[in-house]
Design a protein around this nucleic acid. Sequence first.
DNA 1: CACCGGAACTAATGCGTATTAGTAGCAGTG
DNA 2: CACTGCTACTAATACGCATTAGTTCCGGTG
Lengths: 382, 382
Amino acid sequence: MSSKRGPQATRRGRPRQADVARAAGVSQTTVSLVLGGNKQGIVIQEATRERVLEAARTLGYVPDPAARSLATARNSLLGVFSFTATFPTDARHSYHPLLAGVEQEAAAQGYDLVLFTGSSAHGPAATTPEQLDRVRLADGCLFLGRHIPARELRRLVQDGYPAVHVGRRDELEGLAWVGADYVSASADVVRRLADAGHRRVVLVREDDDAPASDDRERGFRLGLERAGLPAGPEAVFRTADPAAELTAERVRAWRADGATAFVAEETDTGGAWRALLDAVAAAGLAAPRDLSLALLGEPPADLVGGPVPTGFDVPRTELGATAVRLLVSVMAGEPLAEEPRGGEPERGEPGGGGRQPGPLVACAFRAGATAGPPPPPPPGTA
Amino acid sequence: MSSKRGPQATRRGRPRQADVARAAGVSQTTVSLVLGGNKQGIVIQEATRERVLEAARTLGYVPDPAARSLATARNSLLGVFSFTATFPTDARHSYHPLLAGVEQEAAAQGYDLVLFTGSSAHGPAATTPEQLDRVRLADGCLFLGRHIPARELRRLVQDGYPAVHVGRRDELEGLAWVGADYVSASADVVRRLADAGHRRVVLVREDDDAPASDDRERGFRLGLERAGLPAGPEAVFRTADPAAELTAERVRAWRADGATAFVAEETDTGGAWRALLDAVAAAGLAAPRDLSLALLGEPPADLVGGPVPTGFDVPRTELGATAVRLLVSVMAGEPLAEEPRGGEPERGEPGGGGRQPGPLVACAFRAGATAGPPPPPPPGTA
DNA sequence: CACCGGAACTAATGCGTATTAGTAGCAGTG
DNA sequence: CACTGCTACTAATACGCATTAGTTCCGGTG
């Protein structure tokens, strides 16, 4: 039966170009030329071409992606490496919208996605160099997460490996990134509060030095300054444990002090916002009647049912798509070039407006239902 | 500086075994032996081994999956192929937990994930053979989706490619699958209703022939039979448009007829359950006071805020993990063997109990708050 | 009519790894 | 001391495809 099968029983029955060639009475090269792109523009007679196509169809030939990628030195794979699990089980925060954008754009550009699961295996914060290196399997890779293993990542980048971080990341020289424009969006929220008549606004943030948090505070302060509102240190309440330290008394004290609007940053857990809501409720107050509340981002999943917080939406899907586009361009251009980086970090002078069209994606204001004009001064106040 | 770089500028900086070999002063073969499995049991001196490992670490070597796959036909990648988009934004609540399970288990087994989208650039429902064939890049693949391109998938399976479908899928001979045990879970819900005293139970289902729907009805009927309750055709209300056809009158008629408990199947939209709730409310009735309601699955996302429906939870996360385990075992065993299939489809004789431990994952009963004992017969009844 | 040039292919080679045949080097045998 | 049997490696090759050098076969030139 199987007379001249290869030396091994490796042949699963999947035909290869050599088989097609034999059937069509041509060489393997010709088959490759006909079935492959033939970008070299080599001329093939129509009759021969037909014979090859016919043979391929008959045998059910399908190219081996591994062999193809070996030969072309690219495999049409984009990596996604998350420093936490990509699909967190608690679903508190989710990369889902982001991935939707990544996936869509990747597909549009002709890439498939590889999810590197290394970080989810041994719990968080256990990214070994080996795991990160596995990433090189893909033509390029996206990185996600609040905190990154800078040392390992640096090597990758220095080797010229195309990497793009999702979220601002200036500390790593040479790493390209895309980010949401939290600065402008936060400043915008403050502006609207000021426009509504609020004269004193307080920001509640967690004690975490993630760039995303810092950007929000910067935008917050920027908004205050622009509106001519007090932006001293007391304008920001920073605490490691909002649930415990953000009490009803605290809220009352702020109000007595003239504050009528409160802003919380968004974090993985939504802790600041949650604590703010609780404290306000505990103080027997309600928004937007007695005071205004705003959230610099989106509420955690479990609070979605409640009233829509005033604040802004993070365009996660668009962010994902943008990240892919940047990555693709990094892969195309000189990976080590200095130009196509993350763009100017807009340090000292944020400029708020549409200064840098580059990797900063705008966040849309969300009117919501927790903010309005400040209440008339309570009776007991001067 | 870069003196003896390869003949081409192809070398992007990704080191290969030859580079490691040079650095360690050994042959490429030795590197392969040390870094690869070395299943041949060839002896390598500890010192040499160390040198190779050290060199590999220093250079940041990582095996090329394409080359490896070409040489061995495996590369530690598991595919996940969705016949819709891999990350449908709206279906997020059903896919996310599943993917979480897949990710976790894949990581535990040492596999990374490749996400393949069937619908990519060419619009939905356009799964071309080429797209499906790309899957061969991974060692094995999980398939998701209500409807599958049977013809293309069959070829893959017949070629001996390790594939596992998530969700029951008997129609494709030879295709392994894992599914939730809707039959047992549904029967269990009915049993509990019967135990609570209900003598007449009605199932509301949509007009869709998905296996998941059929299984629920089978379980429902099985539960009725076991409890000795009437299981005639009138026990099931099947309609293409529950919202329109499931009216308050209908509910009243059923009650007048002695029915005290109503069960709805879970679907993508939750249409049946929603319609049931609406009709009951429109009839001026309330559960569990006037009647009992149960949902064979989980409520749609927008109803999560309301009262918890009595019913069962689909262990999606576990389902994902189980699917991965099955896939890994399929990959390990003879892919063409007849044994490690999806297990007996438990056709004709469902057996409800713990008959087949194989690929059927149990659903946990959820007490909820919409069911209880039947009310005392209303005054106007005989 | 020796030679050029283009058309239409084919032979040969490389991609990076795994694996299968070796092959030096050396301690023991008989 | 020629030979066996290890040990510890290395050379060579296969995998399936893309690509780069040919090669063959003409129909024209000068």
